[in-house]
Amino acid sequence: MKVLVTVKRVVDYAVKVRVKPDGSGVDLSNVKMSMNPFCEIAVEEAVRLKESKVASEVIVASVGPSQSSEQIRTALAMGADRGIHVEVEQELPPSVVSRALKFIVLKEKPSLVILGKQAIDDDCNQTGQMLAQILDWPQGTFVSKVKVEGEKVQVTREVDRGLETLELRLPAIITCDLRLNEPRYATLPNIMKAKKKPVEKLGLKDLNCDPLHGIQTLSVFEPHKRQGGNKVESVAELIDKLRNEAKVI
């Protein structure tokens, strides 16, 4: 079976972003960009399915600016077979990205689509669920275990109360949580090999995808800063302060 996996180019998780003084957004110039950590987990899972002969082909797709080709190459170096890059320069919300992905799914007909549960830039946590809805497929979100058995997949989900296991009939959507796996690092020979793997470039027009959506960002601003930094010298002083100054115990 074919597996489609999606990747998003985002600001690196270690970067502390700064808000632009004019409030139009955050400053991403000269900031390190990487593959969204949850997408790395998705790629790793897809590649493992291929290594265990469950998947026959792994296709990696990204909807993003021209530089997103770097993240597609990373996924190819991790073991994906070929890429599809939907080039868009403007930032798009999950409602549009999921519509673009729908057309790729209809064209490629994968049995499983694996996505990260959320992107660490907009923190939306929506794309996988929206894609599942518009395809009328079942979904396993926030997944920490995947077991494919014939025409079915068993998924264990990380929910607020603990773990939950669902059985989904394929084709299905999976969104990954942290503990699903530990993504590998691409080796140098694999990075070289990845350069020769095919990447198809498309625009939203090729996909008949309308970029219109109902969200306008009015402004982006800094959150209220906490006044921290006070130190205490001992446990006794700490307890005294908590009891008599902060009055919380």
Binding site: S95, N125, Q126, Q129, L131, R157, D160
Partner: peptide
């Protein structure tokens, strides 16, 4: 996790965006 799981499907079925 209850709301995060359900609501994007609701938004997509109504062909609107979601504010998370």
């Amino acid at each position: 996790t209850f709301g995060k799981n359900i609501m994007p499907r609701v938004a997509a079925s109504l062909e609107v965006s979601q504010i998370s």
